[in-house]
C-alpha cells in the first residue's frame, strides 16, 4: 500500500514539474525604448506623432539652429505602431525625421525645399 502511495506522490510531483515547464509564457511582452527626432530644419515645423498610449499628438516645434534637435522618448511593445510626421511651409526649408529603437536608427525620411509636403516616417516595432 505504501509503495503505491509513494508512486502516486511521485507521479503528481513530476506532473506538476513537467506541466509547469511546458506552460511557459512568451517573451513577446517586453518593452523597447523608442525615440522620435526632428532635426535639420530652418523653420517652424508642424509635427504629428503617435505617443506611448497610441494617441496621435500635434505640436509645432521651433528649432533654434540647424544643429538643434527635437526629441520625444517613450516605451513601446513589440507590434506597436510608431509614427512621426513633419510638414513646413517655408519654401526654402528642409527637415529630417527619424525613429530610433533602443538607440539604433529604425526609419528615417527627409525633404528639401518642398513646402506643404508631409515627411512621414512610420512602422511597426518588430517582433
Amino acid at each position: 500500500m505504501t509503495v503505491i502511495h509513494h508512486m502516486k506522490t511521485l507521479i503528481i510531483l513530476n506532473m506538476i514539474i513537467i506541466l509547469a515547464a511546458m506552460l511557459g509564457c512568451t517573451r513577446y511582452d517586453e518593452k523597447l525604448a523608442v525615440e522620435y527626432s526632428i532635426s535639420k530644419s530652418y523653420s517652424d515645423v508642424n509635427v504629428q506623432f503617435r505617443d506611448g498610449d497610441g494617441v496621435l499628438r500635434d505640436t509645432i516645434i521651433h528649432l533654434q539652429s540647424i544643429e538643434d534637435q527635437w526629441q520625444y522618448h517613450f516605451e513601446a511593445r513589440r507590434g506597436d505602431i510608431v509614427y512621426v510626421s513633419a510638414i513646413y511651409f517655408d519654401s526654402s526649408s528642409t527637415v529630417t525625421a527619424g525613429i530610433l529603437l533602443e538607440g539604433k536608427l529604425f526609419k528615417q525620411g527627409s525633404s528639401n525645399k518642398e513646402p506643404g509636403k508631409y515627411v512621414t516616417v512610420s512602422g511597426t516595432v518588430p517582433y
Binding site: 511521485l10 513530476n14 514539474i17
Partner: peptide, 21 residues
Amino acid sequence: MNRGACIALILFSLSYYACAQ
C-alpha cells in the same frame, strides 16, 4: 525548458522502477 522536462521525465521513470513489486 525542454531539458527540464526531459530530466523530470527521466527521474520519474527511474522512480517508477525503484518501486519494484
